[in-house]
Every structure is written in structure tokens, then in C-alpha cells.
Simulated assay, not measured.
Amino acid sequence: MSDPHPHRSRVVVITGASGGIGRASARMFAARGDRVALLARGTTGLEAAAAEIRAGGGTALLISVDTADHGALEAAADQVEAELGPIDVWVNDAFTSVFARFVDITPEEFDRVTQVTYLGFVNGTRTALTRMLPRDRGIIVQVGSALAHRGIPLQSAYCGAKHAMWGFHESLLTELRHDRTHVQVTSVAMPGVNTPQFTWVLSKLPMKAQPVPPFYQPEVAARGVLHAADHPERRAYWVGAATAGTILANRVAGGLLDRYLAKTGIGSQQTDQRRPAEHPTNLWEPADGPDGHDYGAHGPFDDRALAHSPQQWASQHRRALGLGAGLAAAAAVAARRAA
């Protein structure tokens, strides 16, 4: 059962809220009156995100926390409920990654990506359910990826974590439905997005990393997060034609996609600019720590990122489109009979 009043003021927790999709989502939730708890490891980005929300008249609580640390996340949730009230919506978005061939990723690096990008979602979900299930209400949104359904080169740690998240999501979804609880969980599969990750993710590539084209602005992804939080009755949403195309193509022609990505996947994730020897890396420590740089929601590709997704609109309004198509077909049949 979805929330009967999706636009009443709610308490929303967002992990990974200091940049990218999390930051864009936080601004949108706050702009409509929700009280937003911003969770991330860094401090500079969190403080800037909170300042943006407060400048617009919204309510923001910032908490510096590593989602890989379940105990710290529990303490953060206690603080949220003490200061803002019972948590209505929990958005799992925090992640990290390594751009490199698998053989060039150390075991410690692979473990760290898995701890944040997969187990961080598990920890966040457990923390949310501990509070939501006794109240028999609440919504959890997992910010997923097309790469939860189709692996690509240079991102084995991230793809593995996102595939694990999807399996976890399906398992949990069936358990919640079996228990007939009103707590709901949904997922949003994202395309490539112009976020700061391409500036601060650990990279071992010769050239600067970029999202696989075509890619979108974080506000497009954020609109998908808000829609999922308002309509959690669907198990999953897809954002962007590239996401839909990738998932569907892999279902029907995975072998062909293997060969295509083997030829194009490595080059398409790199620009024509050399990667500097020294660059920010957020795998072990936040790139926006004390006195650090605020990276904001956008990455360095504003001139190429798409600001709208017709597929997203169509996906969110598919019932109306289906009804319209049915009415049009009925009208056509009636016209032919009249003729």
C-alpha cells in the first residue's frame, strides 16, 4: 500500500547526500517540505547541502557517518528520530568504486567497494526496517543501476555490488509481501549520470573516466527517486532509455552484448584527456573532508549531460499511456465499422 498522502511533510533519510544523485534528491525532497537527514562520510559537502536546503526554508540535519559501519548507522538513525521524528522514507544511495581492470584491483580495494556499495545498502535497510516494521509503515528506496543487471568492463567491483543489491532487493521484497506488512521497498535503476564520482573515484585508467554515453544530469535521477518514494508499489523503476535498452538487450542477447562491450566498453568510459597523477580519491577517506572541496551534485560533463528523459516520463505514466492507446484503438475500430 503506497502512502495515501505522498506530499505531506515526511522525514527522509538519504545516504550519500553530500554529492551527486543523493544531493540532488535531498534538495527536491526539502523543496516540497520534507525534513531531510543528510548522511555521508564527508563534512564539506554535507554542510553545503544543508546550507542549500536551509536557504530555501527547508529543514536539514547533517550526520557524518560511514554506511559500512552498521553500529554508526544505527546511532545516526537514533539521532534522526530524536531530532526530526520517525523516519518515513529511507533512500540508500551511498557508494564508492574503482575504475580498473579486475586484475589491477587489490583484494582490499574490492572489499571496500563491496562494503560500501553493497553492505552499506544492507546496513541502511536493516536500520530502517528496525524502526519501520514495529510501526507497520515506511518506504525504502534502493538507488540501483543498469549495471545491477548487466556488467561492463572496468567496473567489476561496482557491478558485482549492484548485482548483489538487486538479489537482496528481490529477496527482501518477497519476504515483506509474505508478511503483509505496509513497509515497502522499491528500486530505481539509473543510467550513467553526471556526478562528481568521475572526479573522486579511485581510477587506474590512463585517461580521465567518464559515464557511458548517453548520460543524464543528477536531477533526472533525483526525479526518479522522488517518484519511487511516492509510488513504492512497483518493485522497480528504470530511468533513461539507455537503462531500458541495456537491461532488455541483455535479457535477449547477452552474448552479443558481451562482444559489443568487449570492443567498446573500455574506450567509452574514458575521455581523450590524460588522468592526472594526483587526483582526489574517496575510497578510504572522503574527498570532501574537513576544509575540503564541495563537489556539489554535478560532475564535469554539464555540456554533454541530458536534462530530461522521455522514457522516464513514459515509465511513470505507463497506465495512462496504456489507457490512451486502448481508447485510440477502440476509436479506430469504431471508425472502420462506421465506414
Rank of each mutant, 00 (worst) to 15 (best):
E278V: 14
I247G: 00
Q269V: 00
N250W: 03
A253S: 10
P276S: 02
Q269L: 08
L261S: 08
Q270F: 09
D272L: 11
R275S: 01
Q269Y: 06
K263G: 00
G265V: 11
V252L: 15
I266H: 13
G267C: 08
L257C: 10
D272I: 06
N250S: 13
P280I: 05
Q269F: 02
E278T: 15
L261V: 02
N282L: 07
L257P: 01
W284S: 07
R259Y: 06
A262M: 04
R274S: 09
T281G: 08
L261C: 02
Q273P: 01
L257I: 09
S268H: 06
L248I: 10
T246C: 05
E285Y: 07
Q270V: 10
V252G: 01
L248S: 02
G265R: 14
R275K: 05
R259V: 09
I247T: 04
A253G: 04
V252H: 12
Y260W: 12
I266S: 09
R259G: 07
R274D: 10
K263P: 00
W284R: 09
L261W: 11
L256N: 02
L257R: 05
Y260F: 11
K263N: 03
P276L: 03
E285L: 09
D258H: 07
T281C: 14
P280K: 01
I266Q: 13
H279L: 08
V252P: 00
R275C: 02
G265A: 11
G267I: 04
Q269K: 11
R259D: 08
L248F: 10
L248R: 13
K263A: 13
L256V: 14
S268V: 09
V252S: 04
S268L: 12
A277C: 04
A253R: 12
E278N: 14
A253I: 08
E285G: 05
L261Q: 10
Q270N: 06
R251S: 07
A249R: 02
P276K: 01
R275V: 04
S268T: 10
L283V: 03
A262F: 02
G254P: 01
N250T: 06
L261E: 05
P276W: 01
